[in-house]
């Protein structure tokens, strides 16, 4: 356990001066900025909404879950592992008297942490977005600052993304090519987009509920799948993929 903490500590140092850290700020920034500018540019009158905050967050969450989050996970994990593949770090790291699985787990924890931070960023930016709109667009009827329900939603989406974080961490660390890591992520995200949109109709294909890249969006569509199922699938899945990754990395030949 202590070894894991040391490994995480060492991972954090490697993030210095990398794109990895900026992406977790930039991606939620772009998503919220899109929503903000569309609200600001809107010329049609606002209908009185039963819940104006819902109106603000809905679009952002949708894009976040379906597109931005899976792509962010893909990029972050691909970048995290590229740092190791590029300088052929494995042949150094794996000669250290530290179990290989700690190094693998540290990577996974850091990937989870980065996506978690990015989610927190999204939360903060959403609150800021709503606050500024309250002031600039009083006709929208935004009142108060419902920080808790929004935080809850952000956190649930984050938990539903654990499975894809674990999958992408493994893919990134397993194959040295950045093209493989990002290709799989982009492909799977687009496939998820198509599946998600086409199964939005009542004739939903049941197995799309167990498509890992669609788990976050299922948090928004709780009528499609109950919350505990989504969370359970994602978290248990992540643990299983993580254990398989640790097992694989200890057996691997480092060439």
């Amino acid at each position: 356990m202590k070894a894991l903490l040391h490994a995480i500590n060492s991972e954090v140092l490697k993030l210095k001066r990398t794109l990895t850290f900026w992406l977790i700020l930039a991606v939620p920034g772009v998503v919220v900025a899109m929503q903000f500018s569309s609200a600001l540019a809107r010329t049609r009158p606002f209908h009185p909404e039963p819940d104006p905050w819902q109106w603000v967050t809905q679009g952002v969450f949708f894009i976040w879950c379906l597109l931005a989050l899976p792509l962010l996970v893909t990029l972050e994990t691909a970048l995290l592992s590229a740092t190791e593949h590029a300088g052929q770090q494995w042949k150094h790291l794996f000669t250290l008297p530290v179990p290989r699985w700690t190094i693998y787990s540290a990577k996974l924890v850091v990937a989870l942490g980065l996506i978690g931070l990015s989610s927190l960023m999204l939360w903060l930016l959403l609150l800021l977005d709503g606050r500024i709109l309250t002031w600039l667009r009083p006709e929208m009827g935004l009142v108060g600052l419902p920080w808790l329900p929004i935080l809850r939603q952000v956190a649930l989406i984050f938990l539903a993304a654990w499975l894809i974080i674990a999958i992408h961490t493994w893919i990134g660390l397993r194959w040295p090519s950045f093209a493989v890591a990002s290709g799989v992520g982009i492909g799977a995200t687009i496939a998820g987009l198509i599946l998600g949109i086409s199964s939005g109709a009542s004739t939903a294909v049941p197995w799309t509920n167990f498509y890992p890249w669609l788990q976050p969006v299922l948090i928004l569509a709780r009528d499609r799948q109950p919350l505990p199922t989504t969370l359970g699938f994602s978290i248990v899945g992540a643990i299983i993929v993580g254990i398989v990754g640790c097992w694989e990395v200890t057996r691997r030949d480092v060439l």
């Binding site: 490697k14 740092t83 150094h92």
Partner: peptide
Amino acid sequence: VGALVETPSLYPHLTGYENLQVTQRLLD
């Protein structure tokens, strides 16, 4: 045991000191 296999494994975006620190932290 200390080892150097083929080319040294270094992180190009870190300084020399930080490169050593990565391993030092890992080994505590």
